[in-house]
Design a binder for these strands. Structure first.
Length: 780
DNA sequence: ATCCTCCCCTAC
DNA sequence: TAAGGTAGGGGAGGAT
């Protein structure tokens, strides 16, 4: 109704001062840096430069991004010929280089040193001195060649005439435009709506933690039937955004999808209520929808706008409660127990959101999450609905089982076969029958939900279990090299997300979709068609986030499966068994500081410290940041205070894990609290402390070394024992150090950030001992 | 019994 | 033309 309101750019509502307060901390920091640079009047070193980072680099992808933004440059996660001016890369395979250079306007591929040197020089240096020339072949490339397929096979080269990989299932050779879509990871992710909504969740963490800093009200603890849970859901989100961008669509049947071809197979992701009246639904091909509704209007995606609207929704929700559980970009729960009247809060949320975005949101409220969500479904469109305890049973009675969240296509079909169409049908059977058919947990869930019972608590933060990236569209490989290239791309994507979520993982899973032997051509343009899904995983000795390692392992798994690459229709990588990386991406940026203060501390205060400092062969930067911080904290503690020092050093020889809680534990148990200010009459440092400090630095070094060896072994051989026997053969000193480190880790499992496989460590230890015994006649 | 791997199902 | 991802829950069945 207020068209101006609808069309205004609410993505970044600068007019609304409070918005900034809700921006996530990182964005805010970058903005401040950006502003500061502008005030400086320099205009930015990298003005006009937009980089895309390829592969594993030092500094990392994330750091380069921050630096570019800080110094006035641009950054693209995905390569775009039109926007990217330089590709930043530490080393590049021939294949990748060719891929970039064959573009119409080749983009220079430059070493990250160019960025670092330019920043150091405070001006944009000529990049030509940093262009990558020497190309290193990936070590696994020749090893992992699979046997060549017979000549004349589908998709193979024939008579020297170049043919394209999509020549399958009787299709003619594809045109150039189609060829550009094949196996194209970058453009796929840039345009995929499912990728967009799927990877959105990773973003919300930042928004939530920023909002938590503002101390929103916390819900009160109440009886389970007296809880007040609300559920909010933006009405046909993508379609509504399209209407708000183009007000002439108001009141028309609108469908959001990629193509407006009335014959095509573009999938509708969202449609307006006017379109729904004709039976148009999300997931339909546009062509099919057009038959149902000839007046259907096509609308494009506006991915950036969705982010903005979503941020507004979450900001509003977090004004009413700190306990908000994100479900998706347009949907969330909030626990508002004891914080006000549910319906009036719902109304305020709805009107506030509409005022700010021009979009409508529907809300549901009840005493549990299940009923709140069902209430929202009842409320749509543009309404609010409340289900009270007394009426909940009545309400569930008529509800089709398909409407129970968690009961989808398969389960509802199964239930229908068992004669259960509505929740009341379920009541007449027993929980045991459901558990027999669906398994104990799922059976119980259906039983409980069908009665309107749900004891879940609204969880505002959840620990991530998996990180992955996959593509099941436009995948047509002619050779294993194609598959390897795609896996390398996917690994980069996975690395990015691991970095973003401050995690590493120990288990790598390769997921494949393989064309079924009798599959007809896919109905969908470049779709995967009928497929078998298979997956294989490998668990490494330590957690990794390096795309090179991930790619290598994924390629190894592909090799292990031994599939015909031409049959692959979908491919993906998943990382599980995640470990949190403390300090996350920031660790490398603060590393120089730690290093510097460590140096200063040793120079200024403690001449003797130099003697016991790590030897020059081991760079401090090679020691894990947590170890460094621990060492530093010890040095500082030592400088400050003798009594305090005792506290910190108590576990120095065994507890250099970098975990804070260890530091604060009192070993002697004498009960003295660490005093902030030392008395002048404290005893001088004892040499025992010196020794322990020395030992802990050594230990950190050993541990680092063994971690490195284990991860190298994991990346290459996967058999630590073999790796060790090959690398350390005849090197007594190395064997000794390794043995020491392995024992250290075995004595303190769990004390180190990198997890070890016990049996492998044990085997390695035995092997080393044996080797020493045989070759040197001694025991270690 | 408990864990692990390889699935399937579901939701957005 | 068209961009069929991502993550969690959980079950079957084998290994330990």
């Amino acid at each position: 109704m207020e068209l101006k309101d609808n069309t205004r750019d609410w993505v970044i509502p600068e007019h609304n001062g409070s918005f900034r307060a809700y921006m996530n901390a990182k964005q805010e920091k970058l903005r401040v840096q950006f502003e500061r640079r502008k005030v400086g009047g320099e205009g930015g070193i990298f003005k006009g430069v937009t980089i895309h980072v390829n592969g594993y680099t030092k500094p990392s992808h994330t750091e380069l991004k921050e630096l570019m933004i800080q110094w006035g440059g641009g950054f693209e996660n995905y390569f775009s010929n039109t926007r990217v001016t330089h590709i930043i890369c530490s080393n590049l395979t021939d294949a990748k280089l060719k891929q970039y250079q064959k573009e119409r306007n080749p983009v220079p591929v430059v070493h990250p040193d160019w960025i670092m040197e330019s920043i150091r020089a405070k001006r944009l240096l000529d990049f030509s001195g940093f262009v990558l020339q020497r190309i290193r072949l990936e070590p696994n490339q020749k090893v992992l060649q699979l046997p060549r397929r017979p000549r004349g096979a589908v998709g193979d080269r024939q008579g020297g005439k170049p043919s394209c990989s999509a020549q399958v299932e009787g299709r003619p050779s594809p045109g150039k435009r189609e060829r550009d879509l094949l196996n194209n990871v970058d453009s796929f992710f840039k345009n995929s709506r499912l990728h967009f909504i799927g990877s959105w969740k990773a973003n919300i963490d930042a928004v939530m933690s920023a909002a938590a800093a503002l101390n929103p009200p916390r819900p009160k603890r109440v009886q389970s039937t007296e809880r007040q849970i609300i559920h909010v859901d933006i009405d046909c989100f993508f379609a509504s955004v399209a209407v708000s961008v183009d007000p002439s669509l108001e009141g028309k049947p609108v469908a959001v999808c990629h193509s407006d071809s009335s014959k095509g197979t573009a999938e509708i992701s969202s449609c307006s209520y006017e379109a729904r009246k004709f039976g148009v639904k999300a997931g339909m091909y546009f062509s099919a929808a057009k038959e149902l509704c000839p007046g259907l209007v096509h609308a494009p995606y506006y991915f950036e706008k969705y982010q903005g609207a979503s941020a507004v929704l979450y900001r509003i929700l977090l004004q009413y409660s700190a306990c908000v559980q994100p479900v998706s970009i347009d949907e969330a729960y909030a626990d508002i127990s004891g914080l006000g009247d549910s319906l009036s809060i719902c109304d305020r949320i709805r009107s506030q959101f509409h005022k700010e975005t021009g979009l409508r949101v529907s809300t549901g409220a009840s005493h549990n999450m299940l009923l709140a969500k069902i209430a929202t479904n009842q409320a749509k469109p543009d309404g609010t609905f409340f289900i009270r305890v007394e009426t909940s049973k009545e309400f569930m009675k008529e509800l089709p089982v398909k409407e129970i969240p968690g009961v989808g296509y398969k389960s509802s079909k199964k239930l229908a076969e068992m004669g259960m169409l509505h929740c009341s049908d379920v009541w007449l059977r027993s929980k045991q029958i459901l558990q027999q058919a669906f398994g104990s947990k799922t059976g119980e869930l259906i039983w409980e939900y069908s009665h309107g019972r749900d004891s879940r608590a609204v969880k505002s933060e959840a620990k991530r279990q998996t990180v992955g990236a996959e593509i099941n569209w436009g995948i047509r490989f002619t050779s294993n090299q194609d598959a390897i290239k795609t896996l390398e791309k996917l690994s980069e994507e996975v690395q990015r997300r691991l970095e973003q979520s401050h995690t590493k993982g120990r288990s790598i899973t390769l997921k494949l979709k393989l064309r079924k032997p009798n599959a007809p051509p896919p109905s969908k343009f470049l779709g995967h068609g009928w497929c078998d899904n298979i997956s294989r995983s490998i668990t490494l000795a330590c957690s990794v986030d390096d795309n090179a390692v991930i790619a290598k392992e994924a390629v190894g798994l592909l090799f292990k499966l031994g599939v015909d690459p031409r049959e692959i229709r979908g491919i993906g990588i998943q990382i599980t068994k995640l470990d949190e990386v403390q300090m996350g991406a920031r660790k490398r940026t603060i590393q120089p500081d730690v290093q510097e203060s460590l140096k200063q501390a040793s120079r200024k205060r403690e001449p003797r410290l130099k003697e016991i400092a790590p030897d020059e062969n081991v760079r401090l930067s090679d020691i894990d940041i947590n170890e460094q911080k621990y060492i530093l904290s010890m040095i500082k503690a030592r400088e400050r205070e003798q009594s305090k020092r005792k506290l910190f050093f108590a576990q120095a020889s065994g507890g250099h894990s970098g975990r804070q809680r260890k530091h604060t534990r009192q070993a002697g148990g004498s009960g003295n609290e660490p005093r902030p200010d030392p008395g002048p009459d404290l005893p001088p440092p004892v040499s025992e402390a010196e020794r322990k400090l020395h030992r802990s630095i050594d230990s950190a070094r050993y541990v680092f070394e063994v971690c490195e060896i284990i991860s190298a072994a994991a990346a290459e051989e996967k058999a630590l024992v073999r790796y060790v026997s090959e690398r350390a053969e005849g090197d007594l000193e190395k064997l000794g150090r390794l043995l020491k480190a392995i024992r250290l880790v075995r004595r303190n499992p769990g004390a180190y950030q990198v997890k070890m496989v016990g049996s492998e460590l044990e085997a390695a230890e035995v092997l080393i001992q044996k080797s020493v015994e045989q070759n040197y006649g001694g025991v270690m």
